[in-house]
Amino acid sequence: MDVREVSAEDVELEYVPAAGVRERGSLGRLWSVRFESVRPERQFPAFRGQGNWCGWYWSATCGGHVGYESWLERDRLMLLDFDPLVTGMASQPFRLSWARADGKQVRHTPDFFVRRSDGTGLVVDVRPDERIEPDDAAKFAVTAAACRSVGWDFVRVGTPDAVLMANVRWLAGYRNPRVHRPEVAARLLEAFADGGGLLAGARRVGDQIAVLPVLFHLLWRRVLAVDLEAGLLSAGTRVRLAMPREGGQDAVASAAVASG
């Protein structure tokens, strides 16, 4: 298929809604479905001798579990969960199919569908650069064209920056709202009003064992901010108040955050 000629009517979409009855139709007819709330196309089994690592990630954004089929997908889920512009996401949300020029049917199931705060959709495929074969590249190209035809964005992402990912993994351990303590949070905002070292600011507020979890939770929520790519979080990391909507300013910010 010439990607320049892909239309939403050329691509069939199959998905399983929350009710559990599979539905199918053209992308042009079904694009408005809330795909961030559908069931995954595939299961995420775990068994002895398994070559990849499947599992379920608890998303603070969704308030529930989202499946993944590899550690890399899990990391990308964390980055999406960390993105303040993401309001919902689903894994293996639907299956796309289309006919090649030779008549052969091609199928492709994207890894994630993401809903952003402005209502727009983002389709994400996770694949390292070194693992993209010609057939994969062709599938990604058609998927991108199909997404454009209905106003969605598409991004194919690989391995994120190692330092960024290590820091986000650490902060993700404090993502659950139960970590939040409003009175401690208020004092932390005062302590870092003019910026300062992470541990020194925490000690000004109180016992660091009680204060640091709240500090890391505020960093996860982007209420406080640090440079997550400058180095691993440490006692001397400089913490400041975050700017409004830090982490992205436009409709494709989720794609930028996803790609590190």
Results as ranks from 00 to 15, higher is better:
122 L>C: 06
14 E>A: 15
224 L>V: 05
63 G>H: 08
185 A>M: 11
73 E>M: 15
116 R>D: 04
209 I>Q: 11
254 S>D: 04
164 L>M: 09
211 V>A: 04
60 A>Q: 13
2 D>L: 03
55 G>V: 13
201 G>I: 08
135 D>P: 01
49 G>F: 03
167 N>W: 02
54 C>W: 07
8 A>L: 14
62 C>T: 13
233 L>A: 06
199 L>Q: 08
146 A>M: 00
246 E>G: 03
74 R>C: 15
242 A>N: 04
40 P>T: 08
168 V>K: 06
50 Q>C: 03
148 R>M: 02
257 V>A: 13
155 V>E: 00
71 W>T: 13
38 V>S: 06
205 V>Y: 06
18 A>M: 10
69 E>T: 10
15 Y>P: 01
74 R>T: 07
92 Q>D: 09
176 N>P: 05
168 V>M: 10
47 F>Q: 04
3 V>T: 12
69 E>D: 12
155 V>I: 14
234 S>D: 12
240 R>F: 03
162 A>F: 01
69 E>M: 11
92 Q>Y: 07
89 M>D: 06
167 N>E: 00
66 V>L: 03
39 R>W: 05
209 I>D: 12
246 E>L: 12
221 R>K: 15
225 A>L: 12
253 A>F: 06
95 R>V: 14
130 E>V: 12
180 H>D: 10
174 Y>T: 02
57 Y>I: 03
109 T>D: 04
162 A>W: 00
85 L>M: 11
76 R>I: 15
205 V>F: 05
91 S>I: 09
13 L>G: 00
222 R>K: 12
20 G>E: 03
63 G>S: 07
54 C>H: 15
225 A>R: 12
122 L>W: 08
183 E>A: 14
97 S>P: 01
259 S>D: 14
12 E>W: 15
41 E>T: 10
31 W>Y: 15
234 S>H: 06
182 P>N: 08
1 M>Q: 02
236 G>S: 15
97 S>V: 04
249 Q>G: 15
201 G>K: 09
27 L>H: 01
65 H>A: 14
169 R>L: 11
6 V>E: 05
241 L>H: 07
215 L>P: 03
17 P>G: 11
227 D>R: 12
68 Y>N: 02
83 D>A: 15
35 F>G: 06
19 A>D: 14
146 A>Y: 04
21 V>H: 14
16 V>K: 02
119 G>P: 03
182 P>F: 08
128 P>G: 01
218 L>N: 03
157 V>S: 05
5 E>D: 11
57 Y>E: 09
251 A>E: 09
42 R>M: 01
61 T>A: 08
1 M>N: 02
219 L>A: 01
154 F>H: 13
68 Y>M: 02
148 R>F: 07
112 F>H: 07
142 V>T: 09
118 D>P: 05
79 L>I: 05
152 W>T: 01
145 A>H: 02
234 S>M: 02
48 R>S: 09
150 V>Q: 03
206 G>S: 08
94 F>V: 10
191 A>C: 11
130 E>G: 08
111 D>I: 04
46 A>M: 11
119 G>L: 09
167 N>G: 07
5 E>F: 01
176 N>Y: 12
94 F>A: 10
156 R>D: 05
183 E>S: 13
219 L>W: 04
221 R>A: 13
223 V>N: 02
242 A>P: 03
